[in-house]
């Protein structure tokens, strides 16, 4: 089943055309990595998919349900009520975590399930503790984010996203704010989620990780997808010169 489908998305900031014509679909259980040079529009794509930005043109569907349709070359979004429901289908993990500093680790995780999804508090707490155990930070449940390392904060942020039971999870450079040791902590968590068949779209600069974990790699440049396919093809035998140049540069 297609969890996410984006067709012919266009997005312009002022005079800068950031996304020119991008289409992506993601199947249930798939792990997709998005690579590309800085400024190529990767974050903008994720932000459009997670409704933090509105698309200028193009259509967007989650689980076959319409979020936005292309009408006369313009995106037309569905009503607030539908958006609210569909928002529960996806989660987003940020580069800089964006935990709520005045909430404890546990409260960061359980607050939205309780107050947005109106779920039972006891049940949500039990689930949150299970997630924290999975992440190896159950002993930190009463800490405030500022007392945790970056890697621990990112694990809390991932747990917070997972607690909403999303069908698909987006990551925007989840390790870029972390040093190498902490990066491997987070990549381990992502591997674990991939093994559990969590559907994920990950913007990353970790080429090895993309090669080993993802089912599909998408390479973006200047607002277009210039190459996509199995990691063995895109990363090990790129056809496009710009992909080759980029990989040569980042792999040193």
């Amino acid at each position: 089943m297609k969890l996410l489908e984006i067709n012919n998305i266009k997005k312009t900031f002022d005079d800068l055309e950031v996304l020119k014509d991008i289409s992506i679909s993601v199947e249930q259980g798939e792990v997709v990595s998005i690579l590309g040079p800085s400024g190529s529009g990767k974050s903008t794509l994720l932000r459009c998919a997670t409704l933090l930005e509105t698309m200028d043109a193009g259509s967007l569907y989650y689980c076959g349900e319409t979020v936005a349709e292309n009408v006369d070359g313009k995106s037309v979004y569905v009503g607030k009520h539908d958006i609210k429901r569909i928002q529960g289908y996806f989660g987003l993990v940020f580069q800089n975590f964006n935990l709520f500093p005045h909430y404890s680790v546990l409260k960061n995780i359980i607050d939205a399930p309780i107050h947005v999804q109106k779920r039972n508090k006891k049940e949500v707490e039990k689930e949150a503790m299970k997630l924290l155990e999975q992440m190896g930070i159950a002993d930190k449940k009463d800490y405030y984010p500022c007392m945790l390392s970056g890697g621990q904060q990112q694990r809390v942020a991932i747990a917070r996203a997972l607690a909403m039971n999303p069908k698909i999870l987006f990551f925007d450079e989840p390790t870029s704010a972390l040093d190498p040791e902490l990066t491997s902590e987070i990549l381990k968590v992502l591997r674990m989620l991939a093994a559990e068949k969590m559907t994920m779209v990950i913007v990353t600069h970790e080429i090895d990780f993309a090669r080993n974990v993802s089912d599909r790699v998408i390479f973006m440049d200047e607002g277009y997808i210039i190459e996509q396919g199995a990691p063995q093809d895109v990363i090990d035998n790129p056809k496009n010169d710009r992909v080759r140049a980029f990989l040569a540069k980042v792999q040193g």
Partner: peptide, 10 residues
């Protein structure tokens, strides 16, 4: 980012 995190969480 806090507004954005809150928005994505619904």
């Amino acid at each position: 980012g806090h507004y954005e995190a809150a928005k994505v969480l619904g």
